[in-house]
Design a protein around this nucleic acid. Structure first.
Lengths: 220, 220
DNA sequence: AATACTTTTAACTATTCAGTACATTTTGCC
DNA sequence: GGCAAAATGTACTGAATAGTTAAAAGTATT
């Protein structure tokens, strides 16, 4: 009797194609959700609900959950590294250049907590997805080259100790800047949130930069 | 016909009760699995398969997945803090005491990667479970008290800068020691694993301790 | 206007997995 | 040795969820 049948004649019309926009929208939402919930904690349906499109399109463009996660990771690195590009330290004397670099890194990490959380999650996964991305690996050596230049100038000027290793120095700067964001929840749960007020963070940024400087200076 | 039937007359007998042992066994395995896979990534069935008991007992003793995770977290903190108890620095001059404390922390973190990973996971979860545990919160102020003592002695002796904050100093020591373990996967994926050989780690430990010392010393 | 690509809608499948029901065995206690 | 409580085993259930199917309509390309 055709009772199960359709009033489906509403012709769905009036939409534009926008492949790039759809993908960007999905990536933006997925970044938030993955950063908040991790890889296995994330529900594709939750992402889908927050985008302006549907779950179907996520699979259409990204294949599966891991594919989406991998793309999110690449996009996050690309965005953050792009933000670092504006920094030009060649004109400064080596000590000032290093101070500026540390202070910038400290602020930059603070300004991108989602990125930090994605890196944390990647570390829990033994960096499996990061290793798989050739794009990401290439970009990061630039940071080392910049540091090597500062070190060379400082050493030549006699203000830095000889024999400094740029990778170790980068490690040190990263450790202090990264931990500040990554471990804020547990640290403030254990010791209070005083250290994370704006004022305290400004002081801490200077403290960190001075600490790094002290560790490279020529002992008198 | 009785063909589907049983040689099941083996009367299942011959087991001993061992509540404490069973719980300890579950906690040990669960610590590994949670540290490897996170909260949502962990499968209770996987834990059960690796213990000498069954899933049934996990729920019997720990209620649910989150209950087990919370107990794992507490046990991990308890174990790690117990390992720190042996350190007695009161007899040393302040600079030596601080050096020893930093070097010990660096090694201690390295020796307990599962603990570090649990803390990382906790940070991804905004420290929700850590905050809920009163046990954990109490223990950690001891670390600050110890540092405050060293600072006071160093300041009195005129070798440390005045006005040092023990929480900030603890933050600094933790950052350098924690990052070394937590971010090893991504860091070595990006910059190579050289920094993580035993020899390089020994050098890094000294570098870190000297860095911390340089940051607290009285400027000349 | 033919053809390939993009988007929508909506239901559907198959599996994984947290948590449970219920029976059985051990143990401490009287 | 009998009873209650604690401990354990086995099998099951129900919900969540990654990923699919199908059909059709709109849009871009040439």
């Amino acid at each position: 009797m055709s009772n199960t049948l359709p009033q489906k004649d509403i012709p769905k019309s009036g939409w534009k194609q926008d492949p790039a926009g759809v993908q960007a929208d999905i990536l933006e939402i997925a970044t938030e959700i993955f950063a908040r919930s991790g890889l296995s904690g994330t529900r594709i349906d939750e992402i889908a609900a927050l985008t302006r499109t549907s779950k179907r399109m996520i699979y259409y463009y990204f294949g599966d959950k891991e594919g989406l996660y991998a793309r999110v990771l690449e996009a996050a690195y690309a965005k953050v590294r792009a933000g670092e590009a504006g920094l030009d330290l060649d004109g400064l004397p080596p000590e000032q250049a290093l101070y500026r670099l540390v202070a910038f890194t400290f602020d930059h990490h603070r300004a991108h907590p989602d990125f930090i959380r994605l890196v944390m999650i990647e570390n829990v996964h033994q960096a499996d997805y990061l290793r798989a991305s050739e794009v990401i690996r290439r970009v990061n050596t630039a940071a080392i080259d910049g540091l090597a230049g500062i070190i060379a100038r400082g050493e030549a000027a006699g203000v830095f100790r000889p024999g400094l290793d740029p990778v170790t120095l980068h490690w040190k700067i990263s450790a202090l800047s990264f931990f500040n964001v990554s471990n804020r929840p547990t640290f403030s749960a254990l010791f209070g949130a005083d250290l994370f007020s704006d004022a305290a963070q400004n002081a801490l940024r200077d403290d960190v930069a001075q600490t790094v400087l002290a560790s490279v200076r020529m002992p008198r």
